[in-house]
């Protein structure tokens, strides 16, 4: 597991209060992990804070799953 993956998983577990095993690559924040639209906004803000990056609104909309988040952050962080 990459470092990015570990840190993203930790944030998801903390914010959504879900079991770590449920946070699989294809797990959708809304459909599988019980998030609502406000939760996803907060998640994206937490990713920005953790990785010191800016995720524009149009990009944020494409981040639907755990895998989407890891791949976006891996591409955009140092």
């Amino acid at each position: 597991m990459s470092d990015v993956e570990k840190r993203v998983r930790k944030i998801v577990v903390e914010h959504l209060g879900v079991e770590e095993e449920k946070v699989t690559e294809s797990a959708s924040f809304i459909d599988d992990l019980g998030a609502d639209s406000l939760d996803t906004v907060e998640l994206v803000m937490a990713f920005e804070e953790e990785f010191g990056i800016e995720i524009p609104d149009d990009a944020a909309e494409t981040i639907q799953t755990f895998g989407d988040a890891v791949s976006f952050i891996s591409q955009h962080s140092d």
Binding site: E42, M45, E49
Partner: peptide, 10 residues
């Protein structure tokens, strides 16, 4: 302001 939580108002 970009760091304001979406849960602040509700």
């Amino acid at each position: 302001p970009r760091r304001v939580s979406p849960f602040f108002i509700p």
